[in-house]
Structure formats: structure tokens, C-alpha cells
């Protein structure tokens, strides 16, 4: 299947994006910021349609929107109180803006908005050109390099912010930088996986890895490996089954990996007892 150029492009971009998503996703899950990740990936949609409505390159809109919202969440948000409500309201409104831009774009382009919307929401990894794939790889490499450079202090600041702050680690600045990296990852991956599906590649490999091992470094590596595996398997599956969209196949494999990890790491007797608990009055001892 590597005879086709579009497949080679998809594998190159897909691998780079999966590595970045797996690494960033590990910290997203560890820092309990999955909802922020969700918001940033959905906001990418608004960025892309706004750029299309204004007639500029959608990639500029993607990165501008996600990084701006990442900064806003980082500056305004407070990790303890009411954070998810604020994120929720802001991003519901930004999605509403996305609808407005989509209507604006379609009235200008004469009703041809179905394709733009579908590509932004669900990705089109087999539609990437060689130049797109190379650019995606370079951006992913930059994200990975920055993340690995700050991995140790970020881990410290995540696990115990108070002690890290006392030891002179710039906890707030690291949190902000991490959100910007998350935003850049979201913008980057939207072209391939789609704004609606990307969350799976952030949450599933990382969640699976953290269920399988408690060692943070092993979990980071495992998360990246699982993300790459899901992407490869998904791309192969959708190549073999033409009706299956590639982004859905990737997310389905990632979710399957997560379910296996969940079952493998759950003691089933305990789970059965807990599941029975709510039915039988449910006071847990």
C-alpha cells in the first residue's frame, strides 16, 4: 500500500502527530485537563472556518484560535474552583461563533460548505499533500522537543505544585506553556484527525498507559507508543476497508486499546462488587 503517495504522506504526518499527541496527552490526563483539551480541539473548528470565511489559509486560523484560547484558559482559569464551568461557557460560545462563520462562508462560497465543515470536524489524513505532511512533521517535532525539554519540571509541578513552587519551579509559567503546547497539538492534529475526534488520540493512549504502569516515565513512553500503534493500525484498516474513514478507524483502535487496558488493570471482582453497590442501597465500606 506504500506505492501510493497519499498513503506515504498520511503515514508520515500520522506518525508525527500521534507521537506529539501521545506525549502531550500523558500530561493532559495526569493534570486532569482533559476538558481543557476537549475545548481546545473543538475551538480549532471555529478557527478553521473563521479563516476560511476571511479567505486566508485555514492553518493560520487553527493555530491562532487554539493558542489564543489556550492562553485565555491559562490566564483566567483557576485549576481549583469553577474552572470547568468557565471553560464550558467560553467554548460553547466559541462553537456558536463557528456556526456563524460557517454560515458566512457558505453564503459567500455558494453553499459549498459541507466539505469544509466535514474536513475540519472529522479530518482528512489521506488528503494531505507532501508539503502538508512535511510541515506537520516539523511542527510535531518542535512540539515534542519543547515538551521533552520541560518534561521533568512539568512532571514535578503536576504531581505536587506546592512543593515544586517552594523549590523554585515556575509552576504557573509551566502550566501556561503546557496549555500552549496542547493548543498547538490540537491545531496540528485537526487537519489529520479532525476537531471532533482528536480528543480520542489525546485521552485514550494516555489513559491506557496510566492504567498499565505507575512509573511516569514508562507511562509517557507507553502512551506515545500506543498512540503511534493506533494510528498505524487505523490507517491500515481504513486502507483495507475503503468505506471506513481513517480518522474513525484510528480512534476506534485507540478506544479498543483503552478498553483492553481498563479490563486488564481492573480487578473484576472488586468492580462487580462496586457495580452491585448502587443497586443494593450502596453504602460503601
Amino acid at each position: 500500500m506504500f506505492e501510493h503517495e497519499f498513503v506515504r504522506n498520511a503515514w508520515l504526518a500520522g506518525t508525527a502527530i500521534a507521537l506529539a499527541s501521545g506525549l502531550v496527552g500523558h500530561f493532559v490526563v495526569l493534570r486532569a485537563q482533559v476538558f481543557a483539551g476537549d475545548a481546545l480541539t473543538h475551538v480549532a473548528f471555529t478557527g478553521a472556518v473563521a479563516a476560511a470565511a476571511a479567505g486566508i489559509d485555514t492553518r493560520i486560523g487553527l493555530f491562532a484560535a487554539t493558542i489564543a484560547v489556550a492562553l485565555a484558559i491559562g490566564v483566567l482559569g483557576d485549576r481549583r474552583a469553577g474552572d470547568d464551568t468557565t471553560i464550558g461557557i467560553v467554548f460553547a460560545w466559541i462553537l456558536g461563533l463557528g456556526v456563524y462563520f460557517l454560515a458566512l462562508f457558505s453564503s459567500r462560497a455558494g453553499g459549498g460548505n459541507g466539505l469544509l465543515g466535514a474536513r475540519t470536524l472529522f479530518g482528512s489524513i489521506f488528503g494531505l499533500s507532501a508539503a502538508d505532511a512535511r510541515l506537520a512533521t516539523v511542527i510535531a517535532a518542535a512540539i515534542i522537543a519543547i515538551l521533552l525539554a520541560i518534561a521533568r519540571p512539568l512532571l514535578f509541578a503536576t504531581v505536587d505544585p506546592a512543593v515544586a513552587g517552594a523549590r523554585g519551579v515556575p509552576v504557573r509559567a509551566l502550566g501556561l506553556l503546557f496549555l500552549v503546547l496542547l493548543g498547538a497539538t490540537a491545531a496540528e492534529a485537526t487537519q489529520a484527525i479532525g476537531a471532533l475526534l482528536l480528543l480520542g488520540l489525546l485521552a485514550a493512549p494516555a489513559g491506557a498507559a496510566q492504567r498499565l504502569t505507575a512509573n511516569p516515565y514508562r507511562a509517557i513512553g507507553l502512551s506515545a507508543a500506543l498512540a503511534v500503534f493506533s494510528t498505524w493500525a487505523g490507517l491500515t484498516l481504513s486502507y483495507l476497508i475503503p468505506k471506513l474513514p481513517p480518522s474513525s478507524a484510528i480512534i476506534a483502535v485507540a478506544a479498543g486499546v483503552y478498553v483492553l487496558a481498563f479490563l486488564a488493570s481492573t480487578d473484576l471482582h472488586g468492580l462487580g462488587r462496586r457495580l452491585a453497590a448502587p443497586l443494593s442501597g450502596g453504602t460503601e465500606t
Binding site: R31, V34, G37, D38, A255
Partner: peptide
């Protein structure tokens, strides 16, 4: 974080 990872997986799937 793990609880919300589960929710995220359900959503994406």
C-alpha cells in the same frame, strides 16, 4: 484525570 480520560474516550469513540 483518569475519570475524565474515560469520559474523553467515550466521547471520541
Amino acid at each position: 484525570g483518569e475519570e475524565s480520560a474515560l469520559t474523553g474516550v467515550v466521547q471520541a469513540l
